[in-house]
């Protein structure tokens, strides 16, 4: 299966293990991910504070590039990219005259967005297009010993109307379904759809770190061995700032934070090196041992 691929800024910056683990898992799945060369940052919701139209134009430019490549499903591996693109596409397709106005700007680059793009996170592609029945035979190391807490965060679920949750209510449970397909036990905990704190990390670090502490401790209290997230920004905060959260809470947390493709890759028998586990701040050694993945 061939898809247009939007890796986003963070998988090529602060979380390179997301990129490499995605590629390793894609190869096993037979997914051909063709990257959109020259696509801009989605704006991540921050640029949209400066002006919604600016963000929408940059995203429409990316959509037009995808259309030109011929395969109109864009695969995201970052929830924030997924959410921001979906919101932009929703406005472009549902605001009378807006698409024409944006296309006027894109014309200068010889681009035109025709409104045919579908934006899907890798989690959605796994469940809706590849199918969990096709994934199961690839699981050579079922994660039977592992209790995994799914951390959805915000952008892959809200706003629900832009993300098609009403039409596909299962999207609120895909992480649990994937964990189960990998042989693991999903852990339900109160923070699963809340904010990780990353968007205010630089503005109000105390609050941001408090969110990290609350979610990781809550997952731990509910029996999780690790958390899994579809968003690299959630990973950066929950993993990178966990030492600070530990200090703030006055207790050792030690909760490994896996990227979604790392979880799937573990179950597929990929090595910790291939999955970039050595790049985590919170050690994944215990999780790897439980999953019996060779070091």
């Amino acid at each position: 299966m061939k898809y247009t691929f939007y890796p986003g800024c963070v998988s090529r910056g602060g979380a390179p293990e997301l990129y490499t683990s995605t590629m390793a898992v894609a190869e096993k799945l037979g997914l051909e991910l063709e990257e959109i060369v020259g696509a801009a940052c989605t704006g991540a919701g921050v640029l949209q504070e400066k002006g919604i139209k600016l963000g929408d134009t940059l995203n429409a430019r990316t959509f037009a590039m995808a259309e030109r490549m011929g395969h109109t499903t864009i695969v995201n591996i970052c929830s924030t990219g997924q959410g921001v693109m979906a919101q932009a596409n929703y406005r472009l397709l549902n605001t009378p005259g807006y698409l024409e106005e944006i296309n006027e700007i894109l014309k200068e680059e010889g681009l035109e967005y025709q409104g045919r793009v579908v934006i899907k996170h890798l989690a959605w592609v796994l469940v809706e297009e590849i199918g969990l029945d096709a994934l199961r035979p690839l699981i050579v190391r079922p994660l039977t010993e592992l209790h995994i807490a799914p951390f959805y965060g915000c952008y892959i679920l809200r706003p629900s109307w832009a993300l098609g949750i009403d039409e596909n209510p299962g999207r609120e449970q895909y992480l649990e379904q994937i964990i189960e397909a990998c042989g693991g036990e999903p852990v339900n905990f109160p923070g699963r759809t809340k904010c990780c704190g990353f968007p205010i990390l630089m503005i109000n670090e105390r609050n941001s770190v408090a969110m990290v502490g609350n979610h990781t401790l809550s997952a731990k209290d509910h029996g999780a061995d690790a958390m899994v997230t579809p968003c690299p920004l959630c990973h950066l905060n929950l993993d990178g700032y966990q030492p600070k959260a530990s200090s703030q809470k006055g207790t050792k947390i030690n909760m490994p934070i896996l990227h979604l493709p790392q979880l799937v890759g573990m179950a597929m028998g990929l090595s910790d090196r291939e999955l970039g586990m050595h790049r985590h701040v919170v050690s994944t050694k215990d999780v790897m041992a439980k999953a019996s993945v060779r070091a």
């Binding site: 919701g45 915000c154 952008y155 809200r158 706003p159 809340k194 904010c195 704190g197 968007p199 205010i200 503005i203 109000n204 609050n207 969110m211």
Partner: peptide
């Protein structure tokens, strides 16, 4: 500036 942009309120 202390809003997290989580869209829960929306």
């Amino acid at each position: 500036w202390d809003c997290t942009r989580c869209m829960m309120c929306v």
